[in-house]
């Protein structure tokens, strides 16, 4: 039997959850033995080259590109896992939710205190740029998510136990202090 294939991505996240994955320390060696990575910043594969077993999603959906990547993951991954607070509830980027997008962009590019370098006074509008969404959406409001790993970031032990349990099919043993929202 070939190894299970894992894909990971960071949408509107800070890569902290990926850092937490690296926090499994020396267990990264057995992990490499157990699984194969496909599209992921860890091996820098940019596009899916095959169907994957597990997709780990960090971050929520803040723009059209995030939605595109998330839907692509849903299509190519049999099991999709939301990793971290941003994927589950929007997180820090979602602090703009409730504020109209026009107001956010004006503050960021025209009227805010850090806009002095924007001498031409424009809001970036290149067609290459992904469109901002009206608000930041948690992943489960865009596609079906199979499992959730809360935390900011989720503890390395939580990620490790979950991966191991998904790979081996054994129930995960999760002590009280590995599931935290901060």
């Amino acid at each position: 039997m070939s190894k299970p294939v894992i894909a990971t991505t960071s949408l509107a996240g800070c890569f902290g959850c990926h850092m937490s994955l690296l926090d499994i320390d020396e267990r990264i060696l057995p992990l490499i033995e157990l699984v194969e990575f496909n599209k992921s910043p860890i091996d820098d594969i940019k596009t899916f080259t095959k169907q994957c077993d597990i997709g780990l999603i960090e971050g929520g959906c803040s723009n059209s590109e995030n939605v595109h990547v998330l839907k692509d993951f849903r299509k190519h991954c049999n099991i999709l896992v939301s990793v971290g607070e941003c994927a589950i509830m929007g997180g820090l980027p979602a602090m703009r939710n409730g504020i109209p997008i026009k107001e956010c962009l004006r503050e960021a590019y025209l009227t805010g205190p850090s806009t002095t370098a924007n001498t031409s006074h424009i809001i970036p509008n290149d067609p290459e740029l992904p469109m901002m969404l009206d608000k930041v959406y948690p992943c489960q409001e865009i596609v079906k998510i199979d499992y959730y790993l809360p935390g900011c970031p989720p503890r390395a032990d939580l990620i490790w136990e979950t991966l191991l349990s998904l790979i081996t099919g054994k129930p995960a043993e999760l002590p009280y202090d590995v599931i935290k929202f901060d």
């Binding site: 509830m89 929007g90 939710n97 409001e141």
Partner: peptide, 9 residues
Amino acid sequence: MAPRFPFAF
């Protein structure tokens, strides 16, 4: 692990 309802924000 995650609320089953959509967020109101």
